[in-house]
Design a protein around this nucleic acid. Structure first.
Length: 424
RNA sequence: GGAGAGAUGGCCGAGUAGGCUGAAGGCGCUCGCCUGCUAAGCGAGUGUAGGGUCAAAAGCUCUACCCUGGGUUCAAAUCCCAGUCUCUCCGCCA
């Protein structure tokens, strides 16, 4: 959420930067409402002031056994008036809030301008592409042939876009989770957390998934609960409504969770394989930082995610999302894309974002500086480190042999109970 | 599922026959004094948000906030209703 004062005072800039995202919000009506709101507020506060003062007088008069009937009946009217005006005010405030909650974040100045994903610049490419002297197969073919993936049975159990792993496949998925968590906790200084996978509406609103994107979420019928689409949601909300001392920052959390997404509107896209599922595993990285450091911290976060790919020796590229491709809450986002040989292209495997104070304002996460009066909002960041299902797919494709077997990456062997290859 | 207890400031914790209580006291924190060092001691200060005034900041001032939402009343942390959460006991269950 943007600060209402900021929107009021920088109307033109806000309009301009949001239009770079392809948003054309009706901010003029918004400003009118805000003016109106402040007028009513002043009147109400005047009346309340009067009531407070006179009520004191009444108390004194009663103590002295004087007759206060006139004042009492006058105040009765004042109170009624206040009540009516308060209703008007609530209505306007709800309207303003509704607009404010649906305005996306303002892109950082370093974010390249562009209309859609085709305008995302490549920041760097890392690793050599594997060379095959045969036609590399898709990971779902490899996985099904090895009997470590079974999409048909998964669809009987749940439906399309659900995974079912068997044997060494299930083990590889689990190995990846442990591998990633170990690196982030032991080498990068993150604290591991295991949060709830179901959250309430407020939590989902705080990080920006609601109110605008409810259709992308799975909601529990009969409950105001949602399945998390990413660990970002519960983990960022660990500190909702808290004020954190500056010497505690930065705070680094990593969490493994399954993620649940309705994938509404993606019919026909990535219909096969592990790339786009209703349920998938992810290891997430979250950082709470001081405002002045958050862009340095974003670079660190990106490197932490990259480390996993480097250790697994998977080729990847990093792109910077342009203004038109940026997510709702993010001020800046890097995507890491891993090489998928069967598709001859790079696919997203991590998304690292700085939300600046956008989420912190919604979630009311504050920072207290030593020796300084008052508090301020801190900055939140998060990134995948990494999407586990997609990493699984990338390993199958990049490490496949002509006979259909898959070599285990060196760094993963200790996590695979000594086996170095998955074969039939 | 049944029975009970509770929710107050960064923390602990007073405060219900409604009325100078934004809220005692303590801890913590900040500044100053004192002190070989540390500890202790002394003095002052120390919530958040939103308005108004101001070019802006400071300052001044007003309003709101004692879990949330309603209600009663001239007036609610205090009374009434509904809800949420936490804790204890019983039952059930992985």
């Amino acid at each position: 959420m943007l600060e209402i004062k900021f929107v009021r005072q920088n109307l033109l800039e806000v309009k301009e930067s949001l239009s770079k995202r392809g948003e054309i919000p009706d901010l003029d009506l918004f400003i009118d409402c805000d003016v109106n709101r402040r007028q009513i507020l002043v009147e109400i506060e005047d009346l309340r002031h009067r009531r407070n003062v006179v009520s004191d007088d009444i108390a004194k008069m009663k103590k002295e056994n004087k007759d206060a009937d006139t004042l009492v009946s006058e105040m009765r009217e004042v109170s009624n008036k206040i009540k009516v005006m308060e209703k008007d005010l609530t209505g306007i405030e709800e309207y303003i809030n509704q607009i404010l909650m649906r305005l996306p974040n303002i892109p950082h100045v370093s974010v390249p301008e562009g209309k859609d994903s085709s305008a995302n610049p490549i920041i760097k490419k890392v690793g050599d592409l594997p060379i095959f002297n045969f036609e590399p197969k898709a990971h779902w073919t490899i996985g099904e042939d090895l009997k470590i993936l079974d999409f048909e049975r998964a669809s009987n159990i749940a439906g399309a876009r659900f995974p079912l792993y068997f044997g060494d496949g299930a083990k590889l998925e689990r190995a990846l989770i442990n591998f990633m968590l170990d690196i982030h906790t032991k080498e990068h200084g993150y604290k591991e957390v295991l949060p709830p996978f179901i959250v309430n509406r407020k939590t989902m609103t705080n990080t920006g998934q609601l109110p605008k994107f409810e259709k992308d979420l799975f909601k529990l019928e009969g409950w105001d609960f949602f399945l998390i689409p990413t660990a970002e949601v519960p983990v960022t909300n660990i500190h909702q409504d808290e004020t954190i001392d500056e010497e505690m920052l930065p705070i680094l959390y990593t969490a493994y969770t399954p993620c649940f997404r309705s994938e509404a509107g993606s019919y026909g896209k990535d219909t096969r394989g592990l790339i786009r599922q209703h349920q998938f595993n992810k290891v997430e990285l979250v950082r709470f930082t001081k405002p002045e450091n958050s862009y340095e911290e974003l670079e660190k976060l990106l490197l932490d995610a990259e480390t996993i790919l480097k250790r697994l020796d998977l080729p990847y590229q990093v792109i910077s999302l342009c203004t038109g491709d940026l997510g709702f809450s993010a001020a800046k986002t890097y995507d890491i894309e891993v090489w998928m040989p069967s598709q001859g292209t790079y696919r997203e495997i991590s998304s690292c974002s700085n939300f600046e104070s956008f989420q912190a304002r919604r979630a009311n996460i504050r920072l207290k500086r030593k020796g300084k009066k008052g508090t301020e909002l801190l900055h939140t960041l998060n990134g995948s480190g990494l999407a586990v299902g997609r990493t699984f797919a990338a390993i199958l494709e990049n490490y496949q042999k002509e006979d259909g077997s898959v070599i285990i990456p060196e760094a993963l062997k200790p996590y695979m109970g000594g086996i170095s290859v998955i074969k039939r």
